[in-house]
């Protein structure tokens, strides 16, 4: 019996979410008394580092193209079968979730996406996940003998727990893609929103797109990624990929600063799992204050530049 983790690499680099799944797999394996195998699409050198996060055995194939979930799910399922793995752990991103359903069918496994806890093994195999826009938690009993789990980012923390291990090459040359890759585009420069630890977000209280300079200054000073509410993206004040909430991106950063956003339930649905929430709004009745850790009732045009200044002073000290 073993746990198989798929750790996605981009240009031989791992994002935190990929390291977190290795950690998750290692912790699950140790609680079950089994071992953890990590399959990854990076060079042997890069892959060896996964040992630091708990991988006991690492299999690598070099490929930068994970666009065909049909092919990749076949690879992962084949490795699971040949290594006697009964649990497959994936990142909770667009790739991981697309793979999870496929692999669950191939292995006839129980599947849960966006798990926020390690499995509780006391009473079967139970993982938790957030439901109904964060208004409830579901406790999923995974009954089948095999399991597929995608792990929500920032759920169990990340720690170093081992030494690098030499990666063994996995031969993936016999697998053929069924989807043709035309082009991959990545937003350069800033950390993409789903992975950002620090987020500065603004809403209709900004009055117009021409006023976003103060938001960008604050974000730059903090090293944060910018986000916005839905009407702001819908009216074209900001690009669509910044839209957070129920119908936009759901995020879980360490710090979410909401500026001139009322805090409608559909907005909160995408951000209320942030570790710390700061709300700046001139209306003391704004619903966002109920979900906030720190609140400032003031005109954003006064207070945002002052916050930036205070941060600059802090960074310089």
């Amino acid at each position: 019996m073993s746990v198989l983790v798929f750790a996605e690499a981009i240009n031989n680099k791992y994002k935190k979410s990929s390291l977190e799944v290795v950690n998750y797999g290692a912790k699950l394996a140790s609680s079950q008394g089994s071992n953890v195998i990590v399959l990854t699409n990076a060079s042997a050198d890069a892959a060896a580092e996964l040992g630091k996060y708990g991988a006991q055995k690492v299999l690598n194939f070099e490929s930068d193209s994970l666009h065909d979930n049909k092919m990749l799910s076949q690879i992962i399922s084949d490795v699971a079968n040949s290594h006697n793995a009964d649990t497959v752990i994936l990142s909770d991103n667009s790739k991981g979730k697309s793979l999870a359903g496929r692999i669950a069918i191939k292995l006839d496994a129980a599947a849960v996406s966006s798990a926020t806890t390690l499995p509780n093994l006391e009473d079967g195999f139970v993982v938790q996940k957030s439901l109904f826009s964060g208004k409830a938690i579901g406790h999923y009993q995974m009954k089948a003998s095999k399991k597929v789990i995608t792990v929500a980012g920032n759920s169990i923390g990340l720690e170093e727990m081992g030494q690098p291990v030499a990666a063994e090459a996995f031969d993936a040359s016999a697998y053929n893609a069924t989807v043709e890759m035309v082009e991959t585009k990545r937003v350069e420069g800033t950390v993409p929103l789903p992975e950002a630890e620090l987020v500065v977000s603004a809403g209709r209280g900004m009055k117009g797109p021409e006023n976003w300079g103060i938001i960008e200054d604050l974000a730059k000073t903090l090293g944060a990624t910018t986000a916005c509410s839905r009407p702001v993206a819908d009216t074209g004040w900001r690009p669509h990929h910044e839209h957070v909430g129920q119908t936009g991106i759901a995020i879980k950063p360490n710090l979410y600063i909401a500026i001139g956003i009322s805090g409608a339930i559909q907005h909160l649905a995408g951000v209320n799992h942030s570790k710390t929430i700061v709300v700046i709004n001139k209306d003391p009745e704004a619903p966002f204050f109920k979900a906030a850790d720190y609140g400032i009732v003031a005109d954003l045009f006064d207070v945002v530049p002052r916050l930036t200044e205070a941060l600059q002073k802090f960074k310089a000290s």
Partner: peptide, 18 residues
């Protein structure tokens, strides 16, 4: 293969510090 055994309500924020 899997089922929701139970639901619970998450702990709410302890209150905003103004």
């Amino acid at each position: 293969n899997e089922a929701i055994a139970s639901y619970s309500i998450p702990d709410s924020k302890s209150g905003v510090k103004l």
